[in-house]
Amino acid sequence: MPESTIDYGYLENDLGYVLRRAQLWVFQDLIRTMSPVDLRPAQYSVLVIIHHNPGLSQISLASALGIERARLVRLLDQLEDRKLVERRPAASDRRSHAMHLTLEGERTLASARELATAHRQACLEEFGGQNNYTTLVRLLAKFGAPQ
């Protein structure tokens, strides 16, 4: 049965279903857009957070991104293998690691940021312009926001 003839019933107005479809579109576009720098959405997010918070602990980084520590360790291993991030002993607790971008990490992030601008433009077009995009981001930002 062609997808265009499928009756989605009440799923068409189900927040979870609609959010998931939007997330799939956004991630697929971001993955395609970031392919020149070979970054996945989670890797890009890690670089952005570390860039804006140099010295952040791995635990704080995992918490900020809402991901499990074990998954973060794998992400950091991948980024460290590419020489984009480095773990340094934290000044306050040498058992923990402070996260920093390397010079190559900063360069890659600068390139990725330019690509992210193109991705944002695609989102603006897909979601019906600046006003709709801004409203959507503002509404969704309430989920999981610090209380």
Rank of each mutant, 00 (worst) to 15 (best):
E68S: 08
P36G: 05
S35M: 06
L61P: 00
R21S: 11
D38K: 15
E104M: 08
L79N: 01
C123N: 14
P89T: 04
F143D: 00
S4T: 07
R95S: 10
N13C: 01
A118L: 08
R88L: 00
G9S: 05
G144F: 09
L65K: 02
A42N: 08
R82Q: 08
K83T: 01
Q147W: 08
Q78G: 05
K142Q: 08
R95A: 06
A62L: 04
T134G: 07
L109V: 03
G55P: 08
E106D: 02
S57R: 13
R40K: 14
L101V: 03
A42R: 11
R120M: 02
L76K: 03
L39V: 05
R20F: 14
Q43I: 03
L84W: 02
R40F: 12
L140Q: 10
Y133G: 00
E125P: 01
S60F: 11
S60Y: 12
D7E: 12
H97M: 04
Y8V: 02
A70E: 08
C123G: 03
P2K: 14
A112Q: 02
L76G: 04
V46L: 07
A141V: 00
R107T: 02
R21W: 09
K142Y: 10
G129W: 15
V85D: 02
D7K: 11
Y10V: 04
G128S: 15
